[in-house]
Amino acid sequence: MDAGGYLDELQLQGRLLRSSAHQCPLSAAVPSCPGWTVARLLGHVTRVHRWAVSILRGGRPDAFQFSPPEDEAELFDAYDAGLAQLLDQLLATPDRAAIWTITPAASAKLFWARRLAHETAIHRVDAQLAAGFGVQGFEPAFAVDGIEELLTGSGAARFDRSRLPGERSISLTPLDSNASWTLLVGPQLLSCRPQAVDDADLSVFGLASDLYCWAWNRAGTEEVSLRGDLALADLWRQDFRVNARAQSA
């Protein structure tokens, strides 16, 4: 996807997140983020959007400060303003701007457009799970990109591998795409290779949208098919840190 495609997704997912959050009390629990309420979810996404704007404007990532308002109307207004600022700033950012990124990237603009599109998309799922009216699926191409962004970026490092007895392999295969991956994990190992292998310790299959949500711990095992060492799937579900960073999903 190009930056324009990510911006379209960011706008869409941001709108869906807002409408879903509006369908339930701000005090409602978010089942996919234990201990969170919808208010905390909305405040978190608002903070992430504004944090990214600060970085895109040349700010230091560790120097940003923002406290979401507690009043419901003000919180939604702050969310709307933050999303609008982010979209405008991404549009205005040159492709080759020298801006800090979480991981090395050829284009900071593309990196942040991609990162924020998927950040917002995953939290849109959280809002819909909290509202309880069902989760809207993702387009396969966007979901495949999201799985790849998770596995090849910094996301896989969220998996606490300390309890693994040794090196293990996890393959993920979206059934509606030609893409697949094998994640190699161990107490001292973390790498991702393109293409699934037949002898992976755990193989996970599903439609791209379901697999995307499963990888982010937003879908259960009933929404995908598992083959191999099911204890690995349990470890992923238990030890994948949803909130490893203050400004990340």
Rank of each mutant, 00 (worst) to 15 (best):
P69D: 14
V45P: 11
L175F: 09
F205K: 07
P69G: 09
W51Y: 11
R218V: 01
G4W: 01
L184A: 06
A113G: 08
D95H: 04
E119F: 10
H123S: 10
G146Y: 04
G166K: 02
R163S: 15
A246Y: 00
G146A: 04
Q136E: 14
L190R: 12
R15D: 15
R227G: 05
I170T: 05
A29T: 15
V125R: 10
E74T: 05
S19H: 14
A28L: 00
P140Y: 02
V144M: 04
E149K: 03
W216G: 12
D234Y: 08
T46P: 02
D95I: 04
I102R: 09
D229S: 04
L207I: 08
L83C: 05
A78F: 06
G146N: 07
D201T: 06
G186I: 08
F240V: 02
G4N: 14
L86G: 11
L116S: 00
L42T: 04
A127V: 06
E167Q: 13
S54C: 12
L41V: 03
A78Y: 04
L42M: 09
S225M: 12
Q238I: 07
D8W: 13
G58P: 04
D71I: 01
V242L: 14
A233V: 06
R96P: 00
G5K: 05
P140M: 01
N243D: 13
E139N: 09
L207D: 02
R237L: 07
D88P: 01
P165V: 02
R241H: 07
D77S: 15
A39E: 14
